[in-house]
């Protein structure tokens, strides 16, 4: 009985999504999901927590304390990457690299400016974050490039780091197909980001 209820709710949600695609454009539906997500989460999680007897206010402040540390922790990485990137850009070297790679990147609709971040992403999370932050400040967060790097950053991972940490922790030396599978997934994430961003933000 409980299962049936869940299935019905699931079907209703699916049907609503399906119908909404007819009434509104794809872009409008996606924008709506993006806008609704945060308010829903900040109301549902505390209500659920309260219902489960969690002291919501105290636990919230407890977790929030860590926010300061996270931000402080990334400052050295941001400064280091900003140094390299800003030197690379203001010297004109970036223009040369972008020009060399433009035939490849243009063919999949990726702006040349984004290429350094795509190359850095699997190697270093803080490095890619630095490049993303730099591109966002230079081009503006609401520009196409600003949104594209945000989506790329959100849909890929520091594959080499995770591979080393996870397999290293259990002493596995032969990783078999883990790396090719993970890197293909990263590449798929990059291309998907470009395509989805063109479809939504065009």
């Amino acid at each position: 009985m409980k299962n049936l209820k869940k299935k019905i709710i699931f079907l209703i949600v699916l049907a609503m999504l399906f119908v909404s695609f007819f009434i509104f454009s794809f872009t409008e539906v996606m924008m709506a999901i993006s806008v609704i997500a945060i308010p829903m989460i900040i109301v549902i999680i505390p209500i659920y927590g309260h219902a489960k007897g969690v002291k919501v206010y105290e636990v919230f402040t407890d977790g929030a304390k860590e926010g300061f540390q996270v931000a402080l922790r990334i400052i050295p990485f941001l400064v280091a990457i900003f140094l390299a990137i800003s030197a690379f850009r203001s010297s004109g070297a970036m223009d040369i690299l972008t020009w060399i790679l433009s035939p490849i990147t243009n063919s999949i609709g990726m702006p040349g400016e984004v290429v350094p971040m795509a190359l850095m992403r699997p190697l270093s999370g803080s490095g890619a974050l630095g490049i993303m932050a730099e591109l966002i400040t230079t081009h503006g967060p609401d520009s196409f490039i600003g949104r594209l790097v945000s989506v790329m950053m959100g849909s890929t991972e520091t594959t080499f780091y995770i591979l080393a940490v996870y397999f290293g922790s259990i002493n596995v030396r032969q990783t078999r197909h883990a790396l090719p599978a993970a890197l293909t997934a990263d590449l798929a994430g990059m291309i998907a980001s470009v395509v989805v961003c063109h479809a939504i933000f065009g």
Partner: peptide, 28 residues
């Protein structure tokens, strides 16, 4: 970071990220 950089709508990337990651996870 988007909000710190002064975005009008820092969360408008949520839906595209969900779509792109669904695709990449499927590929994985």
């Amino acid at each position: 970071i988007r909000s710190a950089a002064g975005s009008d709508n820092p969360t408008d990337i949520i839906a595209p990220v969900i779509i792109a990651t669904v695709i990449s996870t499927t590929v994985a």
